[in-house]
Simulated assay, not measured.
Amino acid sequence: MSYRQIKWIILIVPSIIVGLWEFVRHQFLIPYISMGLGNFITPVILFVVSVTLLYRLFALLERVQEELNVERAHKAELEAREQLARELHDGIAQSLFLLSVKIDKAERQMTQAGAEGGLDELRKTVHEVNRYVRQSISNLKYPGDRSEDGQVTMGHRVGHLAEEAQVHAQVSWNLDEDGFTAREQVELLACIREALFNVRKHASASRVIVNGEGNRQAWHVDIRDNGTGFRNKSYLEDRDKYGIKIMRERTEEMGWNLSISSEEGSTLVRIESRKGE
């Protein structure tokens, strides 16, 4: 039943019922019901209709209105995401692509001039940033799964991140997201994305388990793979490990703890926060 139909029923039904009552009353019940008693019965009938039929119709109307509001909010969110994706594509992504082309051209000119190439590090950084920006554009354009109340949950987004990273991930998400700010959700998902991409690039893993537990006051997220692992802790301090460095910067800025431990055949990345500490 549509919103308009419900409104018309609410407006018409009381009038029809009162009209039928008055017709029956004056045509058949005048000898049995006095004028005073009839005038008393009329509001009683209206009250009974209101607490039975009309009450249910108003509840249905509120539910339909809430669904319409959720749909409008969803549409507004999609339009905002599409606008942001378009701005990223027209601005940052195009500029990064042009910069990478100029770096390649400069390196070719240096090679032809006999100079030693010194742009490898810069080119690698630009290509990495370009990849992140294009992944962000793709995420903005993708609407994502929604829970029963129409909200996109972090658990759903983690599943999509695993698909993007092209890793076989088992997601167990029991993290209560109430109270998390939009920025906290963005930063946490960015760290999980980086951990998943590191698994694909470096771990040679066939399986990843992503587990989120806790609430706003105390929570942790574990990303565990069954890859090769590493024995030397200095591996984490390698200047080429941009992803780990970015994760550390993000977690430190948010006041979270990041720990990375490894043994042969397994690596565990844990992001956690305890408000009481």
Rank of each mutant, 00 (worst) to 15 (best):
E177S: 05
D149N: 15
G227F: 05
G91V: 02
V64R: 15
L98D: 13
M154I: 06
L140N: 12
L88T: 01
L98T: 01
I137R: 08
V13Y: 08
P14D: 01
T52M: 03
S136R: 14
L37N: 10
V186A: 12
L37Q: 09
E62L: 08
K241G: 05
E164H: 11
N226I: 07
R193T: 01
L46Y: 00
L189H: 03
Y242L: 13
L119R: 05
Q166T: 04
G243K: 08
R193Y: 09
Y132F: 12
I12W: 05
I12F: 13
V210R: 04
V126N: 11
K245E: 09
R270I: 01
I244K: 03
E66M: 11
E277D: 15
L189A: 03
V208F: 05
L258N: 02
K102C: 06
W173K: 07
N226G: 04
L268T: 09
A182M: 10
E263K: 15
N211I: 06
I16Y: 02
G265L: 02
Q112N: 10
M247V: 04
N226T: 04
Y3P: 12
V221G: 01
E79L: 14
W256P: 06
L258W: 01
L98E: 13
V44S: 09
A205Y: 04
N226F: 03
Y132N: 14
R207I: 00
G214W: 01
M110V: 02
N174E: 14
E107T: 15
Q83G: 08
R123S: 15
G179P: 09
S273C: 12
A93E: 06
L175T: 01
L236F: 02
R4T: 10
Q185H: 08
D222A: 11
F28G: 06
S15F: 15
R56D: 10
Y132A: 11
W21P: 04
T111Y: 00
P143M: 04
I16C: 11
K7S: 09
R216P: 02
H74Y: 05
V49M: 12
S138H: 14
L161A: 06
I12K: 09
G159R: 14
R157F: 00
N130F: 08
E79G: 04
R134I: 03
R216T: 00
Q166Y: 02
S172V: 07
S95Q: 14
N232C: 05
D104V: 05
V210D: 05
A59W: 06
Y3E: 10
G227A: 03
V221N: 01
D238V: 00
A115K: 14
H127C: 07
L29F: 13
Q217C: 04
F180A: 07
G214K: 02
F197Y: 08
E71S: 13
F97K: 15
H26T: 08
N211H: 10
I271Q: 01
L189S: 06
A169Q: 08
E264H: 03
E164S: 14
E148T: 11
P43V: 00
L268A: 04
G243E: 05
L88C: 08
N174R: 10
E249G: 04
E164I: 12
T267N: 02
I246H: 07
